[in-house]
């Protein structure tokens, strides 16, 4: 019997719109084991970010139940470290202070020096040891996102929620950060749910890739186990034929989703719902 750490059962999200209620996600079932890295993939607007936002507690659950480590989730909290698509650093605080803010919330009993040591440690892990006292506006987007990742890891959360964390980065920085994330994760083995629409990214990072069907009322379409060995290094992974097999299966699924006849006429992209401001990368 597999011990379930995160349990999403019969999850649904309905948004009220001027044209009547819009069901974005319906009957979404997913179980995640502790220490597993799961990627959620699907077309833009299919509701993957909505699932993540519900797990983060930033959006209310319309139907179903969300359980994390035996506790029902219905509000946000620092036991789930969230990395947003845009880094969301507070521009009036230094890099260190941005990370420290979170550490202060989760370790109120520690001394200031201890908390600062934690924040420094994670910032050094993402390669920002020399930029502790810079302000966010002095950093590139990639560096900002590194701070965002450090902030989430420094909380020592039960699980990490990554909402297309590399979506707004250029491809070189993205590849770099993927490698750093994999290393950071392999040393820490937190439970991760990451939303992405980049097939390569999903296969490279995840233990399991969960594919969502085309919305509205989207749910889990297929789950693919990624049996690539760890630790993973980008060059080594790209040399394996298995990588391309898995990648092919993913793309095949996504393509069938794209062409599948829909039950309802195409709807307007609810931009506010899925928050995908950047032009969606076509896979």
């Amino acid at each position: 019997m597999m011990d379930v750490y995160v349990d999403l059962s019969q999850l649904g999200k309905i948004f009220p719109t001027p044209k009547g209620p819009l069901c974005v996600v319906k009957d979404f079932n997913l179980k995640i084991r502790e220490g597993q890295f799961v990627c959620l993939i699907g077309h833009s607007g299919c509701g993957k970010s909505t699932v993540l936002a519900m797990l983060a507690g930033l959006q209310d659950v319309s139907e179903g139940v969300l359980v994390l480590a035996g506790r029902e989730v219905n509000d946000p909290g620092p036991d789930r470290g969230v990395v947003f698509q845009s880094p969301c650093l507070l521009p009036w605080f230094s890099v260190l202070k941005n990370v420290l803010l979170g550490v202060e919330q989760v370790c109120p009993d520690k001394t200031n020096a201890q908390r600062e040591a934690i924040a420094r440690h994670y910032l050094e892990l993402v390669g920002l040891g020399d930029d502790l006292h810079k302000m966010p506006r002095e950093l590139s987007q990639g560096m900002c996102q590194r701070v965002g990742i450090a902030r989430a890891f420094a909380l020592n959360p039960k699980m990490l929620l990554l909402d297309e964390p590399f979506g707004m980065l250029d491809s070189i920085t993205r590849v770099q950060l993927q490698q750093e994330l994999v290393q950071l994760w392999e040393s820490d083995r937190k439970t991760v749910l990451m939303v992405t629409h980049d097939v390569d990214e999903a296969v490279f990072l995840a233990d399991r890739v969960v594919m969502m069907t085309q919305g509205p009322a989207s749910r889990v379409g297929r789950v693919l186990n990624i049996d690539l060995p760890r630790p993973r290094h980008r060059e080594a992974v790209l040399d394996q034929p298995r990588f391309y097999e898995l990648r092919g299966q993913l793309i095949e699924f996504l393509e069938t989703q794209n062409c599948a006849p829909r039950e309802e006429p195409p709807r307007q992209e609810p931009a506010a719902i899925c928050a995908l401001p950047q032009s969606a990368r076509q896979i």
């Binding site: 983060a56 507690g57 930033l58 946000p76 909290g77 620092p78 789930r80 470290g81 969230v82 947003f84 845009s86 969301c88 507070l90 803010l101 979170g102 919330q105 909380l155």
Partner: peptide
């Protein structure tokens, strides 16, 4: 809203 979300996640 992003800034507010940061505060909500950290349960300020």
């Amino acid at each position: 809203q992003d800034y507010l979300n940061v505060g909500r996640v950290l349960r300020f």
